[in-house]
Design a protein around this nucleic acid. Structure first.
Length: 139
DNA sequence: GCCAACGTTGGC
DNA sequence: GCCAACGTTGGC
């Protein structure tokens, strides 16, 4: 049973890494896209995800761990959307910028690059390792 | 069920 | 501020 890896995006103006660290565990709500919802629903406890700042910063700033699997998003009145709880694991020693990711031929298939509008995307183990290396994340 | 119009996201 | 990508809406 292998752990899965993800990348979640947030605009720091709306919810930043600093807030995630301050809150420690935070429900990842507000996803209103079916593909992203599917990804959320696939997440298992113990999965890790990069925390990416979209729009402002455009870089991976930290790592979070899934601590509660998909449940109905309380911020959705319809009840048909889901969220997960994520816990801050730690900051990237050296944030990995989108420019660096795009400059790497090894990462051209990363869903972050291919589907730039999707806010919850899977990351392969291979790509995870590459990105950890770039960010100085201890393996 | 098709497609044009429109809105949103997010990079530049 | 602009624009590309893409999702949603609504007329037919």
């Amino acid at each position: 049973m292998s752990r899965h890896y993800w990348l979640v995006k947030s605009e720091p103006d709306a919810f930043s890494w600093d807030e995630q660290v301050a809150n420690d565990i935070e429900p990842w709500t507000g996803v209103r896209n079916h593909q992203a919802k599917k990804n959320l629903a696939t997440m298992k406890k113990g999965d890790l995800a990069f925390f990416y700042h979209s729009n402002v910063g455009r870089e991976i700033v930290g790592v979070v761990e899934v601590v509660k699997e998909a449940y109905p998003d309380p911020s959705a009145e319809s009840g048909s959307w889901v969220c997960v709880d994520v816990k801050a694991v730690g900051p990237m020693p050296r944030p990995v910028t989108l420019a660096e990711i795009k400059a790497s031929s090894e990462l051209e298939d990363l869903a972050l690059v291919r589907q730039s509008r999707l806010s919850v995307v899977p990351v392969s183990e291979e790509h995870w390792d590459i990105l950890c290396g770039m960010g100085g994340w201890p393996v």
